[in-house]
Design a protein around this nucleic acid. Structure first.
Lengths: 327, 327
DNA sequence: TTGAAAGCGCTAACAA
DNA sequence: TTGTTAGCGCTTTCAA
């Protein structure tokens, strides 16, 4: 492998000139820059990442702490990850993938200066990793919103607003007995941030209207959806609408509603675009822009890195639309 | 951050002694080892990854080149990835995630010595990345089997054997007109290695029995499955069995078969355990052990790294089982 | 069993 | 506009 010294020699300049020409951190005459670029090309020179990291204490690598669990909806995870990775590339950063099942990894990676910054997915309301994240020298962005973010940046869809918007929309449409089919029981039990927040928004909006919440969890399968609706109907036979925040359960919910004779205004789905687009019925819909949130997370963390900006919390406002089946 | 020098000072030894104590590459007296370990603990010392990489030309990082496409079945991808990441951790390696849509990444990462080895997913029969992979100094393992592996290690389920096994099983059960519902048209058109191989095995086995292949692609949706079966039936009204190698289309295929009055021996599903386990009917089943293949890939590449072993090709034999619905 | 010291390849302060 | 050079924090050879 060619080193910076090889390039310097070939171009007839000093190593520092090569370094500066490559980083653009000081002006270089056109002539020498071109000689250097030629040498780089001819020798197929690539800077040694370790050497650069050692000298500059920057690695141009982000850590992505992601759960590869099956209890959260898998395609959604992958959309977040895809958003993070593609956006990282536009900022000339690579992504080191850490899965949650090994808590010591983050420590090692962060303390060993392997990464410049950290993006953390699957945040719980009272997340056990928060102390560690706060103590790091590298900036972190959470995808989600813990109870107390402190000096950590956060970005997510405003799930409380999602819950409120959904209820208000259905109330305006004349529905009164509005159920909620939430994520799987495991996710609920973990107090995954988004589940908690949506539930609160939903319950608050109902309370304001003097109505009681009708909530249930569902496994992320067709059968889970059917069961959940059956359960809701049993407890509340006058159910006249349902908000579904569970991608996998949607098909089952739809079947159950149809069999129960409910119309296509009784369902309000919360989910990513592709999932909802595939639904076989018209319905109201609030998008979870997963890839976009992943991209934003990277933008935010890179901003902090480059502009030394402080932490911020960004909650994307939900938008409600109507999904129509394309025949 | 504490450095190795801080540790050496605190323990009253030289830096080399600390280094050797930590790597275990030369004998250290019990007494000094303990002093060093105490110092490490008290200072919370972590070696600087860049410095280590520079001095030793090892990074303990693997590159995982993975497509984050939606046209391949997403949960399956994530199972591969999970297998790779968890197994990497047991070998004390981290994983740098590269997505396919940026072909220059691999170059940069490999030439910049950011990784010790590379695992590549989503291999096509005549994959355009092969020349580059062959030219790297780092060992590579392909998950899949290109037409000409050369000096590259490969690991995958033996999809040709899957096709053959499926056909032979159905023939033995008295079926004669055996259809194949393959992956999405995009995947087929790319000549993704596994799709090609399964198709060949299937067609060969039929040819040996003097029968013709009845093949079609399907979108990975319920609707895709319904359409695919309809199409097969239209072209071959005497269809009496179908091999499905398309997770997303399975529910639709099942519906279509049931409506067509076919029994539960008419379907042979090829897919990962969790997908098949969720199917609402009994059927024959060949597993795609995605996580296991990911783990094997890492084992193989680590073997080459540590034992200097040469490349090898491992094709896992398929096993056929019966999936039964648990009521 | 331990230590001294020469790099590894780069960045950036300092000097010209 | 360019060059010299001192590190960055490790590993590993050579020497004791």
């Amino acid at each position: 492998m060619a080193t910076i010294e090889d390039v310097a020699r070939a171009a007839g300049v000093s190593v520092s000139t090569v370094s500066y020409a490559l980083s653009g951190k000081r002006p270089i005459s056109v002539a020498t820059r071109e000689r250097i670029q030629r040498a780089v090309r001819e020798l197929d020179y690539r800077p040694h990442a370790g050497a650069r990291a050692l000298a500059s204490s920057r690695t141009d690598v982000l850590a992505l702490v992601a759960p590869l669990r099956v209890d959260v909806n898998v395609p959604v995870i992958l959309q977040f990850v895809a958003g993070v990775v593609t956006r990282a590339r536009t900022h000339h950063k690579d992504v080191l993938l850490l899965t949650n099942d090994d808590p010591s990894s983050l420590d090692r990676v962060v303390a060993g200066s392997m990464v410049d910054a950290v993006v953390v997915m699957d945040i719980e309301t009272d997340d056990p990793r928060l102390p560690e994240l706060r103590a790091m020298k590298q900036p972190a962005v959470l995808i989600g919103l813990p109870g107390d973010p402190g000096p950590l940046s956060c970005v997510d869809l405003d799930f409380a607003a999602v819950g409120r918007t959904a209820v208000q929309h259905l109330l305006a449409a004349g529905r009164r007995r509005i159920g909620l089919v939430g994520p799987t029981p495991v996710v609920r039990a973990r107090h995954t941030s988004f589940a908690d927040r949506l539930l609160h928004g939903y319950a608050d909006a109902l309370a304001e209207a003097g109505l009681e919440p009708l909530e249930t969890a569902a496994e992320g399968t067709r059968r889970g959806g059917i069961t959940a609706v059956a359960e809701l109907l049993e407890r509340h036979p006058d159910l006249d609408a349902v908000v579904v925040h569970n991608e996998g359960a949607l098909p089952g919910v739809i079947e159950a509603l149809r069999e129960g004779g409910h119309d296509d205004r009784a369902l309000l789905a919360v989910g990513p675009a592709d999932v909802v687009a595939a639904l076989p019925v018209d319905c109201d819909w609030i998008e979870i822009p997963a890839a976009r949130i992943g991209e934003l997370a990277v933008d935010m963390v890179v901003d902090r890195l480059e502009d030394g900006r402080g932490p911020e919390v960004r909650l994307l406002p939900p938008t409600l639309a109507r999904h129509r089946v394309t025949p």
